[in-house]
């Protein structure tokens, strides 16, 4: 077992913290914070996975993931502040 593998498992394990916040969060905003942070953590997972497996396309997946999660967060933030999406 490589040191990088251990780091990869720790990084994947960190998403449990975000899941805790998503499940237990007292309000909708707490859940959204959890989702937002989870989206950034996935980029780190993809980057370490690219180093461990040596496949370069995983970085592309990370970039696409972070942009999609950004759009999702903005949509939810607009929604809870009570506005239409084109304002």
């Amino acid at each position: 077992m490589d040191f990088l593998h251990i780091l990869l498992y720790i990084q994947i394990g960190l998403s449990v913290f975000c899941l805790y916040r998503i499940i237990r969060g007292p309000s909708i905003a707490d859940r959204m914070v959890g989702i937002d942070i989870f989206g950034i953590l996935v980029v780190g997972i993809c980057a370490i996975l690219a180093v461990v497996t040596g496949r370069t396309f995983l970085i592309d997946i990370g970039i696409a993931w972070v942009i999609l999660s950004f759009i999702g967060t903005l949509t939810l933030a607009k929604y809870i502040s009570g506005k239409k999406l084109n304002e």
Binding site: S27, I28, A29, M32, V33, D36, T73, L76, A77, K78, I80, S81, G82
Partner: peptide
Amino acid sequence: LVRGSYIF
């Protein structure tokens, strides 16, 4: 998120 949750 900060602004949205304040307005919420």
